[in-house]
Design a binder for these strands. Structure first.
Lengths: 314, 314
DNA sequence: CTGAAAGCGCTTACAG
DNA sequence: CTGAAAGCGCTTACAG
């Protein structure tokens, strides 16, 4: 229909050089009139790229999916992809996964929600598959993107100290994730001088946050502040504080983390640490695509800034 | 390596009949020794199936993604797929979308979060692409799966009536979605006899829920109960009730909808209507795959039961 | 029961 | 700047 060969159409579609403006226009017109869109399987088979990247959610129960954090990241990933590349979702890390991923079905992978010293990212990396991990992995030397959890937690804790609080507790995240460890480290650093003994670990759920808060109150009825390493856990903590008759912030000041959609409507509205989760997803994807496009000198890791948001709870 | 032709290998891999046991064994042995796995793109190109389905999120801002509902559905979809079929995520409904989807790149599509009288599902259906819509579409005659929103809301409202409440308000969902309309209809039905004038529409966010609750209290300071058509809005409503000195449930009884992870940790814990979102996703996928596999006499629509969960707020 | 051959719809050297 | 031709790795009639 454009009056040119298949080769020329291919060049136009792939933005290759050495195509006359006339040919280019004719092809574009024909594409528009035909509503043509290239066959994905054929491109993949003929070319050497799969034109797809995998988003691997490395969590047995896929619990992350219920997390607004993941939703925001997904939105960012998709936005950055801009329709150029397919996004294939993989949620059940299995034995076949490594074979599948390194079998040329995808050009690269974003791996999120890694627990413990999961060997998966290093394994994929060793097989030559470009990957980027969302959240600092505890094992392996692979590229990653993460929020600056340490400094966010540090700032949150310093804020509590600046309020004159002295018995400051911490509801920390899981021990087997960097996000848990780094926010805890930030709290410890912010406590300099004050006794940093009031720590309870919890999973990122309201239920676990409640349990941890209850344990802390049992251990130290005189605590006057708490840094909770995730808003979703802070909801549970607020509930326990309310049940036990502690006024927030008068008796106990509370700072969360994430600035999730829940923070502003908590009772009282939650002072928290904002991280831009959509930007997280965009950065993850940008880093991977840059590598796929052969960019040189890319940073091995990227830390995204966080920011304290002042509301009523502290 | 197996000493047979490509054709025979293909037959063995695809479980076709008319292959001798000897040939079959030889092929299996060779596959194991070589660690062979078929090339997805080649299969797709040669066969007539794409071995992939699309999950289309038809929402301009992709706000749904932040919703635990969507997360649960996604989990269900993935579970039901069981690794057999690729899941391709599409989030920016554009002009190209119809061309892409009906261009043979996917075997079928699941469409969720439809607003208003979106012509998309009917368009795809007319082009011959098997599709299933998540949540009753307001326009078009296409297969869908939905929660039984009407009966869930009905039961919630009857519960409030059975408590002796007489001034029962409703924070309804968006007017342009069936989920908003059906829950409102259920409330109206449950109010039989009582004046059903206290309605405010809101988007599924805590902020909007708060705004609607405030408006209702302004209109009817004497209201003694409220059915809020989503837990995420109920959080905002609870906040306003608390700010205005209304005790829950003593002064105002509250029932939500969804039984999201937030309901149990709300203050007070929220009585709500449970819908099994993972099952929602599984059913959606089952229905689509059944059609792809040529099942006959499939139900055009499937309604999933809901259930009232009693907690403290009503 | 089995194999030779065509073909799925592209990309990519290669030759002009 | 452009086109003819080979080939990506499978499936599927077709013929034996």
């Amino acid at each position: 229909m454009a009056g040119v060969s298949r080769s020329t159409v291919s060049r136009v579609i792939n933005g290759a050089p050495h195509v006359s403006a006339a040919a280019r226009d004719a092809v574009h017109r024909a594409i528009a009139r035909l509503g043509y869109s290239p066959n994905h399987a054929a491109r993949t088979l003929a070319g050497r790229r799969a034109n797809a990247i995998a988003l691997v959610v490395s969590e047995p129960g896929s619990r992350v999916l219920a997390d607004p954090f993941f939703a925001g990241v997904l939105r960012g990933v998709h936005a950055e992809l801009a329709g150029q590349t397919q996004l294939v979702l993989m949620m059940n890390p299995s034995d076949d996964l490594v074979a599948y991923l390194s079998g040329g079905h995808v050009d690269g992978a974003i791996v999120v929600s890694l627990h413990g010293e999961d060997p998966l990212p290093q394994l994929l990396h060793d097989k030559g598959l470009p990957i980027v991990v969302g959240g600092r992995p505890l094992a392996g030397a692979v590229p990653y993107v993460d929020s600056d959890n340490f400094n966010g937690a540090l700032e949150a804790t310093r804020h509590l100290v600046s309020l004159g609080r002295t018995r400051i507790a911490c509801v920390a995240g899981p021990r087997d994730m960097a996000v848990g460890r780094d926010r805890l480290s930030g709290w410890r650093r912010g406590m300099h001088g004050l006794p940093a003994d009031l720590v309870e670990h919890a999973d990122f759920t309201p239920q676990d946050g409640a349990k941890a808060m209850a344990a802390l109150l049992d251990r130290a009825p005189d605590l006057d502040a708490v840094f909770v390493a995730a808003d979703i856990m802070a909801l549970g903590a607020l509930k326990i504080l309310h049940e036990r008759g502690r006024r927030v912030p008068e008796d106990v000041a509370v700072v969360g983390f994430d600035d999730s959609v829940l923070a502003a409507t908590a009772v009282p509205p939650l002072t928290t640490v904002r991280q831009d989760v959509e930007r997280f997803g965009r950065t993850l994807t940008w880093r991977l695509l840059a590598e796929l496009n052969g960019a040189e000198g890319l940073p091995p890791s990227i830390l995204l800034p966080t920011e304290l948001v002042h509301r009523d709870s502290a």
